[in-house]
């Protein structure tokens, strides 16, 4: 690739939206062409400045109420009736059996309902945190700050890899209470979005297959004794990429 080929692709390259082949070609050109590399830096700098400075208008406070008032009551929020956690502390053998079944792909109906309830609760936690502004208890992009913060709060040590170079910088962590259990939640950023990664020890495994729920993407996996469930409003493919990177970082 030469300069005239590369220039129109720089913008998409910075956004990590190019296909693999073109992206590699652009990257290798940038290594050898100081002029294009400078142009890429300028573009990145301008984008960062805009993201920091441009006004993101927030809906006036009364607008949600006005919209709600105009809708019939049947559309109102209902809480999930199916408990996704079957009495966590006293149900370990049962839970372990179920974990295998869950990982095997939810072949039976009860599990599907429970997985649905889990997906609902994880999504609700993600939305609730953003509505109340309680997204992060410990704000740091340094994993050596975030990991020890959990030390006295949960009975396991969550694995906190640094994925900034891959486009998922760490933003911090918080504690969640899910299914009557304390869950360590790592928060990673992706552009203007954030990803909640809930980590808990023991109990049934998280929703294994990627799913979408209320416009949010979910993906879960199990590693060692720990269960992981990631929830975000990024595109499902991006969340899947995050999950692979996280697991590969082990």
């Amino acid at each position: 690739m030469n300069c005239p080929d590369v220039r129109p692709l720089l913008s998409a390259h910075l956004d990590e939206e190019l296909d693999v082949v073109n992206d590699a070609a652009v990257a290798s050109h940038l290594e050898n062409c100081p002029t294009c590399a400078a142009a890429a830096l300028a573009l990145a700098d301008q984008r960062r400045r805009r993201q920091e400075k441009l006004t993101r208008h927030r809906a006036p406070a009364e607008l949600a109420a006005q919209i709600r008032a105009a809708l019939p009551p049947a559309s109102r929020v209902t809480s999930a009736a199916v408990p996704w956690w079957p009495g966590w502390s006293r149900a370990v053998p049962l839970a372990a059996g179920m974990a295998l079944a869950l990982l095997a792909g939810f072949s039976w109906g009860g599990n599907r309902a429970r997985a649905n309830a889990l997906a609902g609760e994880l999504t609700a936690a993600h939305v609730r945190a953003r509505l109340t502004g309680h997204v992060i208890d410990v704000a740091s992009s340094d994993r050596h700050t975030v990991k020890p913060w959990f030390a006295n709060k949960v009975d396991f040590a969550p694995f906190v890899p640094d994925l900034a170079a891959q486009g998922f910088p760490l933003a911090g962590g918080r504690l969640e209470r899910l299914g009557g259990r304390t869950v360590a939640t790592l928060v990673y950023s992706r552009r203007q979005h954030s990803i909640d990664l809930h980590v808990w020890s023991g109990g049934p495994a998280p929703v294994a297959a990627p799913v979408r729920r209320d416009g949010y993407a979910l993906v879960g996996w199990r590693s060692g004794d720990l269960n992981y469930s990631a929830v975000s409003d990024v595109a499902p493919e991006e969340l899947a990429a995050f999950a692979s990177l996280f697991q590969a970082a082990r």
Binding site: I67, R68, R76, D214, G215
Partner: peptide, 11 residues
């Protein structure tokens, strides 16, 4: 429900 899936995107 409609509100649950759509109101978070109000902003």
């Amino acid at each position: 429900p409609f509100e649950q899936s759509m109101l978070p995107h109000l902003d």
